[in-house]
């Protein structure tokens, strides 16, 4: 009796959240999918016109720029965050004295919003006020670091700021995993005469492989969702050279009264996220079943 009450109570407690998620997440995903097949301009209309908006979407040069940028930004962001986070974690794992303090320092950027990060890096990277001006004042008048205002390199400034923000978080993930590695194996390797790098490379890192997967999934969806960082750091500029798909979507749906194109680009972003998440969920669920 009591246990059935308890189980129905837990269902009752979860029900509203479940309902809200069902409507406001999955319901609106379906709604957006439908709108992307309509001719909606300023207001949503429900007249079916087929794949026209997708055809037009892929004719926009700006969309191609945004997609290319996403691949550049996403792959560099994930790769550098993983490498840097892993390296920091391994170094912090050496039983050093002020580990707690250092850990906080590296993790702290994560507590900031991307708007703050973006604004701070905008000042740092601005050639007139930031790093370039500083180094030139030190007596190197030829020093040039103008990525922020260079249309070829603006997208890399996004990588710099995003890595600064997120690598500490990746470090924390790895550090937790490293602490979970069986110390006996490491001791055994020591006795066998393995060097420290070799122990890490051959034993520790392979044994924390699942963390890599989690980190990649988290970072990948951060990359696809990135919007505020672009707004604060480059404003999509120079021109629209550093636009990401989320910025394109906002521009079309909310500034240019092209709701159908905005919805189509949102669906393309969803597909990108799905392409990353679905294999991950699949492998996770399969693993759970097997275990």
């Amino acid at each position: 009796m009591q246990s059935s009450l308890r189980s129905s109570l837990s269902r009752l407690v979860v029900a509203p959240t479940f309902l809200l998620v069902l409507v406001f997440v999955y319901g609106f995903i379906l709604w957006t999918a439908y709108v992307s097949f309509t001719g909606s301009k300023m207001l949503p209309s429900y007249e079916w016109v087929g794949i026209d908006s997708y055809v037009r979407l892929w004719q926009y040069e700006r969309w191609h720029v945004a997609i290319t940028n996403l691949f550049i930004f996403g792959s560099l962001f994930i790769a550098i965050c993983l490498a840097l986070g892993c390296l920091l974690a391994v170094m912090l794992d050496q039983k050093i004295r002020i580990e707690g303090t250092l850990r906080t320092i590296y993790l702290y950027p994560m507590a900031l919003s991307f708007i703050v990060t973006g604004t701070a890096w905008k000042w740092l990277l601005n050639p007139g006020t930031g790093v370039q001006a500083f180094v030139r004042d030190l007596g190197f008048p030829e020093f040039t670091f103008d990525w922020l205002i260079n249309e070829q390199f603006a997208v890399y400034t996004l990588v710099i700021a995003a890595v600064w923000q997120s690598s500490g978080f990746v470090m924390a993930l790895f550090l937790a995993a490293l602490r979970g590695v069986d110390q006996e194996i490491i001791k055994a390797a020591y006795l066998d005469g393995a060097s420290l790098p070799r122990i890490y490379w051959g034993i520790v890192i392979p044994s924390i492989r699942p963390v890599f997967l989690s980190a990649i999934v988290i970072l990948a969806h951060l990359a696809v969702k990135s919007f505020d960082l672009v707004v604060a750091l480059t404003g999509g500029g120079p021109g629209f050279a550093s636009d990401l798909p989320a910025n394109f979507m906002y521009e079309m749906a909310f500034r240019r009264n092209q709701i159908n194109i905005g919805a189509a680009s949102a669906m393309m972003m969803l597909c990108t996220v799905m392409a990353i998440i679905v294999p991950y969920l699949y492998s996770e669920l399969r693993g759970a079943k097997r275990g």
Binding site: K41, R62, G239
Partner: peptide
């Protein structure tokens, strides 16, 4: 012009100016 056309024009102007 409408927001959509204006946006398309601005894209070209700013891309030309910055490249």
């Amino acid at each position: 012009t409408s927001g959509a056309v204006r946006g398309a024009i601005l894209d070209v102007i700013t891309q030309h100016f910055n490249s």
